[in-house]
């Protein structure tokens, strides 16, 4: 049984098509990344999954049943645009949101305290929300989606606007939750985050599905022809015959090898002239795959030159 299943979902606002023919499934206990640049239809898709809007056509099922509001009790949702009652005290707020999810006031407040401790915001508990920093407010919202211990956690851009320390803290929390067997769906335009976290991804662009499947499987479709070199000294080895193209950032080079070329030959050439501190052979990054996919699916110049915020 899949936790979430979308079949040929389509949604249009007036003349603008937000989501066109989107299908994917999310398996229990997996971390699923919904990827795409800004305005590609991620939020529209998520809003349909949790029933804020209704698809024009296609079907959505949760926990193996067709969508029904009662199923939302098992879902935790963090919207992209964060919102809390500004004048409310943090604990009142968390208790209230917990109660809306069907918890008793005591359970809600007990769990809220545990979470606040875990996310290091205990000192904020008795303050009003408007007095807190944006990062703190985001943590509170994060907690509010988890209080009722949902089986499915849906987060729209959960790490945007956070400093690296807090972003890592929340990522680690998500990884922990996944270990406990929860299913997590999150959207982001940051491809690097997805590479680390996700088992499965779905890449959308201009409201169309570009790529989907398991992270490992997608990567294995591509040849291992990327090389990262950190070096000091002479950079003339970058003209080596195995190299298809190279970007030199001065001491750090990203190289794409020619088809069938051997990376070892390049390494040998490099150590003759320069001092190599790092030499890594790898698959293309998700970002490179994305750009490649987008340019090959749409030949129109403006979408080919799409900018990915990475």
């Amino acid at each position: 049984m899949s936790i979430v299943e979308l079949q040929h979902v389509r949604k249009a606002y007036d003349t603008k098509i937000a989501v066109a023919d989107l299908s994917f499934t999310i398996e229990p206990g997996s971390m699923f990344g919904l990827l795409g640049p800004n305005g590609s239809g991620k939020t529209s898709s998520i809003r349909m999954i949790i029933g804020i809007t209704v698809p024009d056509s296609g079907t959505i099922s949760l926990f193996g049943q067709p969508f029904h509001r009662s199923l939302l009790k098992r879902v935790g949702y963090l919207p992209e645009e964060r919102g809390l009652y500004k004048k409310m005290k943090v604990m009142d707020q968390l208790t209230f949101l917990g109660q809306l999810h069907g918890l008793s006031a005591t359970t809600a407040s007990k769990r809220a305290h545990v979470w606040c401790e875990k996310l290091q915001i205990t000192e904020a508990i008795h303050k009003k929300t408007e007095e807190l920093s944006k990062g703190m407010q985001q943590k509170i919202q994060f907690i509010s989606t988890l209080l009722h211990e949902p089986e499915l956690i849906i987060m729209d851009e959960p790490f945007s606007g956070l400093d690296p320390v807090n972003a890592v803290l929340l990522m680690d929390t998500l990884v922990d939750l996944r270990k406990q067997g929860r299913t997590i769906l999150f959207s982001t335009h940051r491809m690097d985050q997805v590479e680390k976290l996700c088992d499965n991804i779905c890449l959308i662009h201009n409201s169309h599905l570009v790529l989907s499947g398991s992270m490992r499987e997608i990567k294995s479709r591509y040849p291992v022809n990327r090389v990262l070199i950190n070096f000091t000294g002479d950079d003339s080895f970058l003209n080596h015959s195995t190299i298809h193209s190279a970007k030199n950032y001065g001491g750090h080079a990203e190289i794409r090898l020619k088809e069938g070329a051997d990376a070892q030959a390049l390494l040998a050439a490099a150590i003759v002239k320069a001092r190599v501190t790092r030499f890594e052979v790898m698959e293309p990054t998700l970002e490179e795959i994305f750009i490649e996919k987008v340019t090959e699916t749409s030949q129109t110049p403006q979408s080919a030159g799409v900018h990915v915020n990475a």
């Binding site: 029933g51 804020i52 949702y77 919207p79 645009e81 919102g83 809390l84 949101l97 809306l100 989606t145």
Partner: peptide, 17 residues
Amino acid sequence: IEEKTSRVFEVMLSTIK
């Protein structure tokens, strides 16, 4: 309007009607 300006409505609408 408060829910709209503070953007709380999206959380609310994902739990209640």
